[in-house]
Computed example of a mutant assay.
Amino acid sequence: MKLSDFKALTFDVYGTLIDWESGMVAGLKPLTDKVSQPLTRDKILEAHAYYESTTQRWTPAQKYSELLPVVYRRLAEEWGVEVTWEECQAYGFSVRQWPAFDDSRSALAYLKQHYKLVVLTNTDNLSFQGSNARLGVHFDGIYTAEDIGSYKPADRNFDYMLETLARQGIQKGDILHTAESMFHDHVPANKHGLANCWIYRRHSKEGFGATMNPGDLPSYDFRFNSMSDLVATHKAELEE
């Protein structure tokens, strides 16, 4: 199997192209600065992962920018901090400010020459619009949790993507699902029979950070530590 075997790359965005962990930690700083107990970066991210995934499971149709304020409030309650709803809402609006990884923009510009680029994201349309501006590429398909009414790893999100792409002549075998999160993306990619590429942004860190532990690790067809590594491998294939 080679990267050049595929016609479309379907991306998770947050954690893969957008450095959501840095964005989260920065956005939560007004809250974590008030916490008396010591909190490591990973403890913050792991707590966030729990409340985010739990809230997504309970209210799957809620927009991400409206769901994050609930996460903020749950974290404040766990850490014994008083917050206003306005503070919670400010965190929900912060997604548009989360930074892109340094290599994302240039990698996408290169890959756009060789593939259709598609987004399957757990965010809402307005939040993603801000992130898309940071990525600087026109995606051929943008499928948000707001569009679908549920959050990954739900089957519904992948069924929607596959059905929509099939109408455009892109079949399952044409797709390489490209993502960082084992929990949100690679477990369901395995379940749906999709070829998958793990962008292991956390390769130098322990644990799963801002995503839930997936349990038994799913299989993957490719693994790169960055988007630039993926691009380098694709270029090497073409040279051969």
Rank of each mutant, 00 (worst) to 15 (best):
Y91S: 07
Y91E: 05
G92R: 01
F93W: 12
Q97I: 00
W98T: 03
P99M: 12
A100Y: 01
A100I: 09
F101S: 09
S104K: 05
R105F: 09
R105A: 14
S106R: 11
L108H: 02
H114C: 11
L117P: 09
L117G: 06
V118H: 00
L120Q: 02
L120D: 06
T121N: 13
T121C: 10
T121M: 06
T121P: 09
N125G: 06
S127W: 10
Q129A: 13
Q129P: 00
G130V: 12
S131V: 07
S131P: 14
S131R: 08
A133E: 15
R134W: 04
R134H: 14
R134D: 01
R134I: 07
L135D: 12
L135S: 12
G136L: 06
V137S: 08
H138W: 08
F139I: 01
D140C: 06
Y143N: 01
Y143M: 13
T144V: 07
E146G: 10
G149H: 09
G149L: 12
G149Y: 11
S150Q: 10
K152V: 00
P153Q: 05
D155W: 00
D155S: 08
N157V: 00
F158Y: 15
Y160S: 15
Y160E: 15
Y160N: 14
E163K: 07
T164C: 07
A166L: 04
A166P: 00
Q168R: 11
G169W: 04
G169T: 08
I170H: 03
K172F: 12
L176R: 00
L176T: 01
A179L: 12
A179K: 04
A179H: 11
A179M: 05
E180M: 12
F183Y: 15
D185H: 05
D185W: 04
A195Q: 05
S204V: 04
S204H: 09
